[in-house]
Amino acid sequence: MNKAYGVQVTVIPAGAGEATVAPVIVVARDEQDAALVAAEAAGSGAQAETLRELSPEEIAEHGLDLHAPGSLKALPLLRL
């Protein structure tokens, strides 16, 4: 069965620019699959790390469909 995971994606630009870090939620079979889906979606130069599995409450809050493996939802970035 699929689960939902919180993943941190880091995109490193080809030039000398600063890396961008973004939080995403991925529906996948396991933690490794979630990281692979997120990194592939972000494109070349991207790295992804699965942080944790989401709770049932968080899955409902974000309206995720666990029957749609590979689906990804970007979370907003806070600019403080």
Results as ranks from 00 to 15, higher is better:
21 V>C: 12
27 V>D: 02
63 G>M: 01
32 Q>Y: 05
32 Q>C: 01
57 E>C: 04
68 A>V: 12
60 A>S: 13
58 E>F: 02
66 L>A: 03
49 E>R: 14
20 T>L: 13
77 L>F: 05
72 L>Y: 06
80 L>W: 11
43 G>D: 10
51 L>M: 10
79 R>Q: 13
33 D>F: 01
10 T>K: 15
17 G>M: 12
43 G>L: 09
2 N>L: 05
45 G>Q: 09
2 N>Q: 13
1 M>Q: 11
16 A>F: 15
27 V>Q: 01
14 A>G: 09
46 A>F: 06
66 L>H: 03
46 A>V: 05
46 A>P: 09
16 A>Q: 14
23 P>K: 07
58 E>C: 01
48 A>G: 06
29 R>P: 02
29 R>T: 10
74 A>P: 10
20 T>C: 05
59 I>E: 01
25 I>N: 00
68 A>Q: 15
26 V>T: 03
78 L>N: 12
15 G>S: 15
21 V>S: 15
20 T>H: 09
42 A>L: 04
32 Q>G: 07
38 A>R: 03
12 I>T: 15
52 R>Y: 12
29 R>D: 14
16 A>K: 14
71 S>H: 09
20 T>S: 13
1 M>F: 05
59 I>K: 00
40 E>T: 14
41 A>S: 14
5 Y>Q: 00
25 I>L: 08
32 Q>H: 07
2 N>I: 01
41 A>N: 13
18 E>W: 04
44 S>M: 11
4 A>G: 02
58 E>R: 06
41 A>E: 09
19 A>Q: 13
45 G>I: 07
75 L>E: 09
28 A>F: 03
14 A>I: 07
29 R>H: 08
64 L>D: 02
